[in-house]
Design a protein around this nucleic acid. Structure first.
Lengths: 202, 202
DNA sequence: GTCTATATGGCGATAGAC
DNA sequence: GTCTATCGCCATATAGAC
């Protein structure tokens, strides 16, 4: 195996990540990726048999970036109120760093739900543990009684949706002022945490 | 003009709506639409000059179905608490009827933000009126003081996101039990309204 | 390993008979 | 208005020289 192998493979993955994240699977072409990597199409197929396989490699990497944040916050020793704040802050901060990921994942989720769900399960995340934790807080009277699943989905919705719908919200509510929208997202770290904490107050 | 004109045009629109909603613009082909309508490709171009124009017709129709609900609830004479309940109920009910629309709009928003934002603006929606209304409620002390834009985005997030991310949430939290997820969405009409009302309580 | 050149197929769109 | 046949293009993928 030639020593250039790893370099070229990494080069291709970098280019593919960029192109796929920006254009989705259908919108991206092998030529775009080759140009981005300053190589030729044939080489892409040499390293990754097909467009599908190349995409899969990119997707797994992208999802792995987001997944840990979903749960991490819940298993600290902090009081529940603090856990919520940490969850929201960590999650929105991560999304600010990779803002294309929500739209990318939702898009591919639509294209091939089966494949994506299996991929997520392979990361070993277990939502039941989070639900059990939320239920305990309810039993202790720390938060209002409600369906833990609804609460979890509410938290994810509030964090993720603005990134997925960015062009619409920015175009509509912010007259396409990108800086204003970035500030809006930055403020959401605190706004969303307060919103949730008020909503669950017993 | 031949009498069959309207029939065929409607037939094509029905088929195009179905195919575009399921596959998005890139994923759909003119042949799929022709097959769905049980006609041939050439006829599609006879009625709608191009794939782009056909898509535009479908998109405007799909969006028009959702848009009125966004604002309608806010301009009744009901007290604010009731407006929230009506908004959430109307919106989620409409989405239950056309569950593919969120993913469809988000997908095309990503593919061509400019075009979609223009199409939406052409429907004449004006968010400023809603913000003014929210601000008045804050001044009257009926709800907690906060950024009206954050509140509006929160409401939209809570209503729309579960539909856009359905395959993920269903596969992950509901072990792919579609009936359980449908019940979950039905329950959200009340859950989300309560969640918001608690969150904005002064 | 990396390149150029090419095979193969499907796409949107059009021409032209009926 | 509706059809069949076909054009021209660009996509993924491969062959084969270096």
């Amino acid at each position: 195996m030639n020593e250039k192998h790893n370099d070229t493979e990494a080069l291709i993955l970098d280019a593919a990540r960029k192109v796929f994240l920006e254009n989705g699977f259908d919108g991206a072409t092998m030529q775009m990726i080759a140009s981005e990597a300053a190589i030729n199409k044939a080489l892409l197929h040499y390293y990754f048999r097909s467009k599908d396989r190349l995409f899969e490699a990119v997707f797994i990497e992208a999802f792995s970036r987001m997944a840990p944040n979903i749960i991490k916050a819940f298993f600290s020793e902090a009081p529940f109120e603090q856990k919520i704040r940490i969850f929201v802050d960590t999650y929105i901060s991560a999304l600010l760093q990779y803002p294309q990921i929500p739209q990318f994942i939702l898009h591919e989720l639509h294209r091939n739900p089966q494949r994506i769900v299996e991929l997520i399960k392979s990361t070993g995340i277990n939502p039941e543990m989070v639900f059990a934790l939320i239920r305990r807080e309810m039993d202790l009277g720390h938060i209002k009684a409600m369906d833990p699943k609804q609460l979890m989905v509410n938290m994810l919705s509030l964090c993720i949706f603005p990134f997925a719908a960015r062009p619409m919200i920015q175009g509509f509510i912010f007259n396409n002022d990108a800086a204003a929208f970035d500030l809006f997202l930055e403020n959401r770290k605190k706004e969303v945490a307060e919103f949730i904490l008020n909503a669950v107050k017993p």
